[in-house]
């Protein structure tokens, strides 16, 4: 810890002032407003604000659509996270071998990190397009079934899950690779001398040693699936068919800017905030504990 400070009294305030101002004006104040307005309801053209107490919240929790969207989002986020992490860890282990062309391979695998959710959405929508999609065709040849995600909600859900997980592979691989490289060579070498197979040393040594990274990525992936996949859904499925891909952020957007139900949208905002607080609490709790292994 650094105990050596400069003595200036005003300068530090000036240094933090811009950040603090931005935070108060553009983050804290709007959130406070969201919280306050979650107790009101108003007309589409911004008229007639009426205080309704907890009604917006009660409506949400008694709405099968909201509860379904909540469950769907949790499932979506869990699938994106676990599929994404499993594949990424596998890739990171492959890339961590001493092989020729490693740098090239790494780049060829991590590039989707540069990609937006919107682009991920259109790319996978094309691959699964009911009429001209490559995957649709391959599935048809292999199984004789013509898959159509415009009608099949489960399939649409699978597609946005794949697209979202795929998009985040690059990010995950980068972090896993660096975690694997940080494992001291001596530990692995001594395990090998003790006669441990590479599987054994992977599960007994590498995995425990990268737990902190794993938890970090776990939280990051959940947050990603919750908050950064809106574009994907909006361009690929618009929440459909029916409501089968309507995740929480999409529902929030629709209620706020399509149906102009600001009260409900604000209540949904507040609930989303509760999720983030939950995730962040877990992040602290578990990454602190995780550090003991690493």
């Amino acid at each position: 810890m650094n105990e050596s400070y400069f003595k200036e009294k005003i300068l530090p305030y000036l240094l933090v002032l811009p950040s603090v101002l931005v935070i108060i004006i553009f983050l804290v104040y709007p959130f406070y407003e969201a919280f306050k307005l979650s107790f009101f309801q108003g007309g589409a053209w911004g008229t007639n604000q009426i205080f309704v107490g907890l009604e917006n919240y009660i409506n949400l929790f008694s709405s099968p659509k909201y509860l379904a969207s909540l469950g769907r989002t949790l499932l979506f986020a869990s699938l994106v996270t676990f599929i994404g992490l499993a594949i990424s860890l596998g890739l990171a282990v492959l890339l961590n071998q001493k092989i020729k062309g490693r740098l090239f391979y790494r780049t060829a695998i991590i590039w989707p990190y540069a990609l937006s959710a919107v682009i991920a959405g259109v790319l996978w929508a094309l691959l699964f397009d009911p009429s001209i999609g490559l995957i649709t065709y391959v599935v048809k040849v292999l199984t004789g079934i013509r898959i159509n995600w415009r009608t099949n909600g489960n399939l649409a859900f699978v597609i946005i899950t794949i697209a979202a997980a795929w998009r985040n592979i690059g990010y995950n691989v980068i972090f896993f690779m660096s975690a694997l490289q940080n494992i001291p060579k001596q530990v692995l070498e001594s395990a090998e001398i003790d006669g441990a197979s590479s599987f054994q040393s992977f599960f007994r040594i590498s995995i425990p040693l990268i737990t902190p990274t794993m938890f970090f990525l776990l939280i990051m992936n959940y947050l990603y699936a919750f908050f950064r996949t809106f574009g994907l859904v909006d361009v690929a499925t618009q929440g459909g068919p029916g409501t089968s891909t309507e995740i929480l952020t999409y529902k929030l957007y629709k209620d706020a800017f399509v149906f102009f139900d600001a009260g409900s949208a604000n209540a949904q905002s507040v609930l989303l905030f509760a999720f983030i607080v939950g995730f962040t609490y877990l992040q602290f709790k578990y990454t602190q504990r995780g550090v003991f292994y690493g």
Binding site: P130, I132, R150, T151
Partner: peptide, 18 residues
């Protein structure tokens, strides 16, 4: 009948002769 989508997506099914 096959459901092809909400708006214009069904056109593709017709044009690609499905």
């Amino acid at each position: 009948l096959i459901y092809g989508g909400r708006e214009y997506e069904p056109d593709a099914a017709f044009i690609s002769q499905n």
